[in-house]
Design a protein around this nucleic acid. Structure first.
Length: 197
DNA sequence: ACGATGATAATCT
DNA sequence: GATTATCATCGTT
């Protein structure tokens, strides 16, 4: 029994700090999570689920403990851990982590990364290093090839504005990014949120 | 170190 | 047809 499933059946804002320091395994590769973002679904303008249930966001409305994987910017896959009971769309985006097992495999998948600290620094890099693909959407994180180990006690963490979220959902209004201070694998803060003009 | 830009396709309007 | 929860690369300080 890797963890108590009930722990994830709570709002994303409560689950997010629990996932810092957690270890997510997929096959031979494992990462220790160091940076996440909370998305609260229908009340959150920055969430995919803000405008209700669609085919893409279906798993976000499903039971907690499953993976919400989506395709982004034409070439990237990002992964969330679904939170809250079934029917409530709430999830935590895995933004960065440190590879602690299967480093060789991760290096092979990410040949452009020349430092190990950058192997899983960024949401799309993390999924690439773990080998998560769009087909993993809806997978149970407690079943093979996945495994999730939550830390026994929560570690220190910092919070700040979410990255890459444009419009009302971004900025200081929703400081729902959580990270482990002083971690080399945490992505640098980007202030520029929107594009154009 | 930092900022601008192109790549590239699913999803939604 | 517009938008996007991004990354790598190339330019300038």
């Amino acid at each position: 029994m890797p963890f108590t499933p009930g722990l994830l059946a709570r709002p994303a804002l409560e689950v997010a700090p629990l996932l810092l320091g957690a270890v997510l395994t997929r096959g031979p590769v494992a990462v220790r999570i160091t940076e996440v973002e909370a998305y609260l679904g229908e009340i959150d303008p920055g969430s995919h689920a803000f405008r209700g249930r669609t085919p893409r966001t279906e798993t976000m409305f499903g039971p907690s403990g499953h993976l919400y994987a989506y395709f982004s910017y034409g070439m990237h896959v990002c992964a969330n851990v679904v939170c809250s009971p079934e029917g409530e769309a709430s999830a935590v985006l895995l933004r960065a982590g440190e590879i602690i097992a299967g480093v060789d495999e991760a290096r092979w998948r990410r040949p452009t990364s020349h430092r190990d600290a950058a192997l899983a620094r960024g949401p799309a890099r993390l999924t690439k290093a773990l080998g998560i693909v769009l087909g993993d959407d809806g997978a149970d994180v407690s079943c093979a090839p996945f495994d999730l180990e939550l830390p026994t006690h929560s570690s220190d963490f910092a919070t700040g504005p979410r990255t890459g979220v444009s419009g009302v959902g971004g900025g200081a209004r929703y400081p729902w990014r959580f990270w482990v201070p002083g971690e080399a694998s945490v992505s640098p803060y980007r202030r520029h949120a929107g594009r154009g003009s």
